[in-house]
Simulated assay, not measured.
Amino acid sequence: MELLAGAKIIRLRTHKGKYLIAGDDEESVRQDRDGSMKQARWRVEFVDGNDGVRLKSCYGKYLTATNEPIVPRTKGHKVLQTLPTRLTSAIEWQVERQGSELRFKTHYGQFLRPYGGLPPYRNRVGHDVPCRTHTEDKILWELDILESVDSVKSQENAIH
Rank of each mutant, 00 (worst) to 15 (best):
P130F: 09
L146N: 03
E2Q: 14
Y19S: 01
L12W: 04
V79Y: 03
S148M: 05
G35S: 08
Y19C: 01
I145F: 02
K138V: 02
G60F: 08
A65W: 02
L112Y: 09
T85R: 14
Y108S: 14
I91L: 09
I91Q: 12
R13W: 00
V129W: 03
D24A: 11
K78G: 02
R41Y: 09
E2N: 13
L143R: 03
G99A: 10
Y59L: 01
L80M: 06
T14R: 06
L20T: 05
V152N: 00
K75E: 12
G49R: 09
P69L: 05
A40W: 09
V47P: 09
K61R: 15
D24H: 03
T106A: 06
I91R: 02
L4F: 08
E26K: 13
E96C: 07
I145W: 01
Q31F: 02
S36D: 13
F111G: 00
D34V: 11
E101N: 13
V47Y: 07
D128H: 11
T74P: 00
H127D: 04
C131I: 10
A7N: 04
R86Q: 12
K8F: 02
L143Q: 07
S148L: 01
G60T: 10
E27V: 10
D48C: 02
P114T: 03
V152R: 10
W141F: 09
R132V: 13
Y115T: 01
G99T: 07
V47M: 08
K78Y: 04
K75S: 13
S151M: 11
E45F: 01
Y121T: 12
I9F: 01
E142R: 15
L87R: 14
S57Y: 04
E45H: 11
I70V: 15
T106S: 15
L102I: 13
H127Q: 13
F104N: 03
E96V: 13
W93F: 05
S57H: 04
I145S: 03
T14P: 01
H160F: 03
R113V: 01
G109S: 06
Q81N: 04
A90K: 14
V53N: 08
R11P: 00
N67H: 09
D32N: 13
D128N: 08
T64L: 04
E156G: 00
R43P: 00
W93N: 07
Q155T: 11
E27T: 10
G23M: 07
G116H: 08
V129K: 12
D32P: 02
T66F: 04
K16V: 02
V95A: 04
R73P: 00
K18Y: 06
S57N: 06
E96Q: 15
E142M: 03
P84A: 10
I70R: 04
Q110D: 10
S89H: 12
P84H: 11
I159W: 00
P114G: 15
Y62D: 00
S151R: 10
R97M: 14
M1V: 12
W42L: 08
D25T: 03
G116T: 13
V152L: 11
E68C: 02
G76T: 10
S28H: 07
G6E: 04
G109F: 07
Q39V: 05
A22H: 04
P130E: 15
W42S: 06
V71N: 06
P130T: 06
R113T: 10
A22K: 02
H77Y: 12
F111D: 00
K18E: 11
R97S: 11
Y121V: 08
I145R: 12
V95L: 05
